[in-house]
Design a protein around this nucleic acid. Structure first.
Length: 915
RNA sequence: CCUGAUAUGGCGCAAUUGGAAGCGCGUCGGUCUUAGGAACCGAUGAUUGCAGGUUCGAGUCCUGCUAUCAGAACCA
């Protein structure tokens, strides 16, 4: 199969690899991608882009996996690199680098599996990851790379934690303020009382509350890390609710700003929607039914409340439950139990026995039981029965609802099962024949509200309730405070110690960093995955000599006990992009001048933030919500000038791959499968079935960038990934198609370099005018595509231009040079090489990207198709500036029609004749 | 069940404000050639998911449906 004779200067994989190594060395030695800061050690007034318009391009913080990269991983990295390189050539000062999110569960689990210390495996993995990425020729500024596990990095993570801990949220000003200002306000109180109040207001606080305990991982988890069916996102272990003492972050204080500020961000709508849903703001009212406070979004329907429902766990249930069934209690209400107490106990046992999955599967069948007590509807004095039912959740609102079956589908279903009365309080349209009606309409059966529309009625009833002390307007959220501690080893230690009374004390900044101690046994204590009653045990608590520490915190040396929980993986990724801006600064986590330059607010972008942030959708509510929260705290405290971290967000798609199974269902290696006929796949002589999914070891369909680089070269690989389709759409990998991209680069190469002699073959003759026009059309189109990240269409245009070029006898320099420059963002190594062979010294990184000449974008003559009754019957060629009458006449002449009913001339497009 | 996205030659994708359905890969043929090839030249290939509607004109706008993918999970 080997070629007998390949021209010595053909652009083969070997040639590509030589060129790539040469230019990567050049970039490294010359610091080509160093981006100058305004101030500090990274400032460089000699840099061609010093002080220019800035552009901060960011990839989501990768976790350096021990498994290595497959071809799907670099997709976004290549996309940001293309964008960054284009913007450098377009005159901007571009900051692009990459660091590593190296703390956290996966790193620790990998270390436990391999029996080595997580620091060692993490550092090895980072090295391996860097080596794999460096082959691709990404234009990163290596001076700015950080890892969350660097002591100098997490020193500042701890510092930010202290900022948050030492703040409180002023609800009037709607912003965080230093805790010292609150202490000053409470100066009149005794110290112990003041401390209690202050501690209860901190943005980071310790609470004893129901949390997600995951015995299989041996740690607690944030709500965001638990899947809808009650399992851990990482590892898929069961998760149980346990009352435990844990660190929390008061993210709920920022719920409104986290929702409202989405409006100024350039993010995909689906992501904004997911954040809004997760925060789950609902406006309505609290209403008191006797001693029970409910939350409702529909206070206007209160006249239709015919019963109440409490969550089975509601604190008031035990107090309210009656000793005996009241006279005349419906049989269906009792669940067949002799007394309300028995019924309540039995129902609680029934709901506790159901897993979350079962609860959801059973959601359509309403269950519940009457507790034998009644409450009074404050608007009409009606005594309505109180039920407990699992369709009301303890964690939302007040854990109690007024049930209005007329306007709520769930309440209607419940009312049908328990034979409860139904009163409509909004008049449905005559055509409505459903059950609960949730649409617009005038109020009915509602006393003084009758006739009002929903909005009017809501306002009126809230005013009425407030005037009489029966309730108040209110806003509730689905968002809970963020559970911030983990019972693991591989994370940032808290800069917190406890005194002999168990009071938490923040360490002063001067005692940072608190270094993670080396321990022999870093494995977390894990339990049987279903052992809900197990107790978390932190690995750090075993490091006795570290935990017990003598410090002088102002009142002489005393012995304290260190906090032994660690921070969750999300901590470092909440602020890493700020450290990229000023990675060597030892005085500040980022210098204010550098922060203002790179991410400060600009006109049209009031929030400031990263100019382009590329990553997968899977971080929609975890990382992106936490990072926004931290950033806002830093903004409130005056540490940053931007109030959002990421101005423009772009979600890349995934590269997926086919996998094949034989008739026993066993996966066979995908690369050994051949397609004998369309749709018929064969492996080792046997027919196999094809399926589509993620790329991974278990499906035996992994293709690595290493293989692609050695078989085709990095530039071919980059061009292929970028030309496969729009960046935000998932697409299947197809190794056989990569060759198309290689042929394209070979054609470009051949246009400039003689394959046999290696000499440069461009001519000084001007290009034919039609090629010249195509060139300028291509420039204009590629520039537009670049701004919108439409790399696939940009490449398609370059291919068309190249194909037009290969048809010419010689390659004119005035086309070859702009083509090479436009190719550079996608295939930087070959472009640098060709640029060099075209006689230019140095790198093209900061050479101006070609500009289209507007005069070349309009043709001298225009060809119009002539349609008759919608069918093309002829074409005419007229001068581009011809008047409409002339075009009309020429068109009618061309199709030999004299008595057209109507003639439509679309300038520059076509002529349509209605005969 | 709800929400959102997508549907265009065999495959992957284009098509500006509604204005000539294109590109690349594959396939086929030819050139060069002892041969091979990732070289060169040329060609084949579409009822734009389905059914209606608006329009001189619809891939594009409107209505209804189907399929695939993703997300949400009784949030009062």
């Amino acid at each position: 199969m080997e070629q007998v004779e390949v021209p010595p200067f053909r652009y083969t994989a070997e040639m590509a690899n030589r060129i790539e190594a040469r230019w990567q060395d050049y970039w490294r030695q010359n610091g080509t991608f160093h981006a100058p800061n305004p101030v500090g050690p990274l400032a460089d007034a000699q840099h061609p882009r010093y002080g220019a318009e800035k552009m901060f391009v960011l990839d989501m913080f990768p976790y350096p996996s021990g498994a290595g990269l497959h071809v799907g991983h670099p997709l976004g990295f290549i996309g940001t690199d293309v964008f960054a390189r284009f913007n450098r050539m377009a005159g901007r000062n571009v900051l692009h680098t990459m660091g590593f999110d190296a703390f956290g569960l996966p790193a620790e689990q990998y270390a436990v599996q391999t029996g080595t210390h997580p620091r060692k495996t993490t550092e090895e993995n980072i090295e391996r990851y860097r080596a794999q990425l460096s082959m691709l020729g990404l234009g990163h500024d290596p001076r700015r790379s950080v890892a969350t596990t660097d002591v100098e990095f997490y020193r500042w993570t701890q510092w930010i934690f202290l900022q948050i801990y030492n703040s409180w949220f002023d609800a009037d000003q709607k912003k965080a303020r230093p805790i010292a200002e609150l202490e000053a306000q409470l100066a009149h109180l005794p110290a112990s009382e003041r401390r209690k109040i202050v501690d209860s207001k901190r943005l980071a606080y310790v609470s004893q509350a129901p949390v997600n305990w995951c015995p299989g991982l041996g740690t607690v988890l944030a709500n965001e890390e638990v899947t809808a069916d009650g399992r851990s996102e990482r590892g898929n272990f069961p998760v149980f609710k346990r009352n435990l003492k844990q660190w929390m972050m008061r993210i709920t204080a920022y719920a409104d700003r986290l929702i409202d500020d989405l409006d100024v961000l350039d993010w995909p709508e689906p992501i904004k929607l997911m954040q809004r849903n997760w925060i789950g703001r609902s406006t309505g009212a609290y209403i008191d039914f006797s001693s029970i406070r409910v939350f409702t979004t529909r206070p206007d329907t209160v006249f239709g409340a015919t019963y109440m429902v409490l969550a089975p766990e509601h604190a008031k249930v035990d107090e309210l439950v009656a000793d005996e069934w009241p006279d005349g209690t419906h049989a269906v209400w009792t669940g067949g139990h002799a007394t309300p107490r028995e019924a309540v106990a039995a129902y609680r046992e029934f709901t506790a026995s159901k897993s979350d999955v079962e609860r959801q599967a059973d959601a359509k069948e309403k269950t519940g039981v009457f507790i034998g007590a009644f409450a009074m509807n404050p608007v009409n004095g009606a005594h309505i029965p109180i039920f407990i039912a699992d369709y009301v959740l303890a964690g939302y609102g007040t854990g109690a609802i007024m049930a209005v079956p007329g306007q709520d589908e769930r309440d209607w279903e419940f009312a049908e099962v328990f034979e409860l009365p139904i009163i409509r309080t909004v008049e449905p349209p005559a055509s409505f024949d459903g059950k609960a009606y949730t649409g617009e309409g005038p109020a009915i059966n509602s006393g003084f509200l009758d006739g009002m529309d929903i909005a009017q009625a809501k306002a009126a009833i809230i005013e009425w309730l407030e005037a009489r002390g029966f309730g108040e307007g209110a806003v509730t959220y689905r968002l809970r405070d963020w559970l911030f501690s983990r019972q693991r080893y591989w994370g940032e230690p808290f800069p917190i110690v406890f005194d002999e009374h168990g009071n938490a004390i923040a360490l002063p900044d001067s005692m940072l960093p608190v270094e993670l101690p080396d321990v022999a046994d870093f494995a977390p204590k894990t339990f049987d995955v279903n052992d809900a009653d197990s107790e978390p045990e932190t690995p750090l608590s075993r490091a006795k000599e570290w935990v017990e520490v003598e410090l002088d915190l102002g009142d002489g040396p005393r012995v304290y006990r260190r906090e032994t929980n660690v921070m969750p993986q999300w901590a470092g990724s909440c602020w890493y992009q700020l450290r990229y801006l000023d990675p060597t600064n030892e005085q500040h986590f980022v210098d204010p001048a550098n922060e203002a330059y790179w991410v400060g607010p600009l006109s049209g972008k009031p929030s400031g933030g990263v100019d382009l942030y590329v990553g997968g959708v899977e971080h929609a509510v975890l990382h992106l919500l936490y990072a926004r929260f931290w950033h806002k705290v830093l903004y409130d405290l005056g540490h940053v000038s931007s109030y959002e971290p990421y101005q423009r967000l772009y979600n890349q798609g995934y590269i997926q791959a086919y996998a094949y199974r034989d008739d026993r269902g066993a996966v066979v290696p995908a690369e050994e499968v051949v397609e004998e006929q369309p749709g018929i796949y064969v492996w080792n002589g046997q027919k196999v079935d094809r399926e589509y999914g993620k790329m991974g070891k278990s499906l035996k369909n992994v293709v690595t960038p290493d293989e692609m680089c050695s078989q085709y070269g990095a530039d071919t690989f980059r061009v292929y990934e970028m030309s496969m389709g729009p960046l935000d759409v998932s697409r299947p990998w197809d190794t056989r198609a990569v060759v198309g991209s290689q042929r394209f680069l070979q054609r470009v190469w051949r246009a400039v370099v003689d394959e046999h002699t290696g000499s440069t073959v461009v001519s000084g003759d001007p290009a034919p005018v039609e090629v010249k026009r195509l060139l300028h059309k291509t420039i204009a189109g590629v520039r537009e595509d670049m701004a919108e990240l439409r790399f696939n269409t940009a490449i398609a245009k370059l291919i068309e231009l190249t194909n037009a070029l290969t048809k010419l006898d010689g390659t004119p320099r005035d086309v070859a040079e702009p083509l090479v420059l436009m190719l550079a963002p996608f295939a930087p190594h070959i472009a640098e090489e060709l640029w060099h062979r075209l006689g230019h010294a140095g790198s093209l990184t900061y050479v101006d990207f070609p500009q289209a000449d507007p005069a070349m974008l309009v043709d001298a003559t225009v060809t119009y198709p002539v349609q008759v009754n919608g069918k093309v019957r002829g074409r005419i060629e007229v001068a581009a500036d011809a008047g409409e009458d002339a075009i009309r006449a020429a068109a009618l002449d061309a199709v030999s029609i004299v008595d057209a009913k109507k003639v439509i001339v679309v300038p520059g497009r076509l002529v349509s004749v209605v005969a």
